[in-house]
């Protein structure tokens, strides 16, 4: 079964409960929904906001490719990925990944896979805005983000069931 992932790149916030309803509506075969949401933290009070930059056009395309890979790998009935851009303040949502399946394991693995690839392959960048309004510089990519991808290639096939 081929599914059509829902991919959105938007300035506005999203409603997680609403996205679950939309993803599961008309799919009585779905028995498991896993969502991951990434939220802006305040880094001990030093951070006023994040400025999220993205590559319009490529961002949607890159996320869609990741979603299609997940759909090929696990029996997923629905995939949603939403990433915000622009200014986001502590406590606000940044990203949502949703994977739905008949059983929990595919939903858990699909959501984790989507999130790991989204972090390293989707063209978004975070700039820190400090409490005093000054430019806190760009967030550096972590080596652990690239390492997170390796577990998916090392373990090809183990999660199919």
């Amino acid at each position: 079964m081929t599914i059509k992932p829902v991919i959105r790149v938007q300035a506005n916030d999203f409603d997680i409960a609403r996205e679950i309803e939309l993803a599961t509506a008309g799919h009585p075969e779905i028995g498991a929904v896993v969502t991951f949401s990434g939220i802006c933290r305040d880094d001990g009070g030093s951070l006023a906001a994040l400025e999220l930059e993205h590559y319009p056009g490529m961002a949607e395309r890159a996320i869609n490719e990741i979603a299609l890979q997940a759909a090929e790998r696990w029996p997923l009935q629905a995939i949603t990925a939403i990433h915000r851009y622009g200014r986001v303040t502590p406590g606000e949502n940044i990203v949502l990944v949703l994977a739905a399946s008949a059983h929990r394991q595919a939903a858990f693995d699909g959501a984790a896979f989507l999130m790991d690839f989204l972090k390293s392959k989707a063209p978004f960048w975070k700039k820190l805005i400090a409490r005093d309004g000054s430019d806190g510089g760009w967030v550096d990519a972590k080596e652990s983000d690239d390492e997170a991808l390796q577990r998916w290639s090392a373990a090809e096939g183990f999660e199919r069931s």
Binding site: L52, Y55, M58, P123, W125, A141
Partner: peptide
């Protein structure tokens, strides 16, 4: 052609 630093989304 897009040129950019390593990505830091999510």
């Amino acid at each position: 052609i897009g040129l950019f630093p390593p990505m830091t989304g999510g």
